[in-house]
Each structure stands twice: as C-alpha cells, then as structure tokens.
Amino acid sequence: MTNEHSPVPVSSRQLKLKKFCIWIETKFEGRIARVAFALHMAISAAVFYTIQLVQAAWLADARWPLWAASGILVAGTAFWVILQVVRRFHDMGRTGSLFWAVSIPYWAAGKLIGMFPDLWFVWVALCAYPIWLTLQLFVRSGTDGISRFERRTAPAV
C-alpha cells in the first residue's frame, strides 16, 4: 500500500467535460440581487405559462418532435430558475443547497396531498419553511462584499 500519486493520462473528451463542469460551477457561484431575481422569476413564469398554453392549444395532436422541443424549452427554463435561486441564496450569504429545502417539501407535499387528501395539516407543516424561504428570496436584501458561497475562484477582498 503506497501513498504516491503519479499522473494518469487524461483523454481529450474528459478534458472537455472538465472545462464544461468548471463553466457550469462558475455560473452557480455568482449572485443576483432581489429586484433582478424577481424580474427573472416573472419572465420564467411567463415562459412556463406560454409553453403550457401552446401545448394545450396547438400541440395536442402534434407530432412528437414538437412535444420534444417544448419539453427541452421547459427543462431549459427550469434550469434557469434553479440557477437564479441558487445565486439569490448566495447573495443573501446562504448556501445554494437550500434550493433543495425549497423544492423537495413542495414536491413531497404535492405527492402526499394526492395520496391522502384529508391530511391538509401535513401539507401546511411541510410547506411552512419553504414558503418562508421563498418569501425571503424576494424581499431580503443581499449581504455586503463577497460571501463565502460566492465565486470561490475570485480573489479574497
């Protein structure tokens, strides 16, 4: 058993993937102010709504490539929303992992209410904290200077 670490050859495909990952991680490590965040959310909501309308009005009998295209648009918008939520948390000086605390309880509550419609109080209990966090995303002001969750590659101030 040794403790040496000799270099291993890295393929060009893996290097491209590495570059892509650095790019995507850098995107998530930024920050966004509350007003810009609200604007992004409003635009995203409008896009989602429009896609739904288009799907209901024109795509009902359409061929699958059109459905696939609308699905890709939905996925892209969802990614954009996630990116903005994470950046907003960074702006507030909090970890972007809180995105899960916002999204999972809503999803679980939706599932539970579908299975057990009488258990509305469980829904309220599950969603109380995510609602509080969501409100903060829109109204709480950002921190001063570079937060520890912001771009880690940036030089310290």
Partner: peptide, 8 residues
C-alpha cells in the same frame, strides 16, 4: 477515478 477526469 478523479485522476482520469483531470482531477489528480
């Protein structure tokens, strides 16, 4: 391993 992905 991370080594193969360029993270030795």
């Amino acid at each position: 391993s991370p080594d193969e992905a360029g993270y030795p």
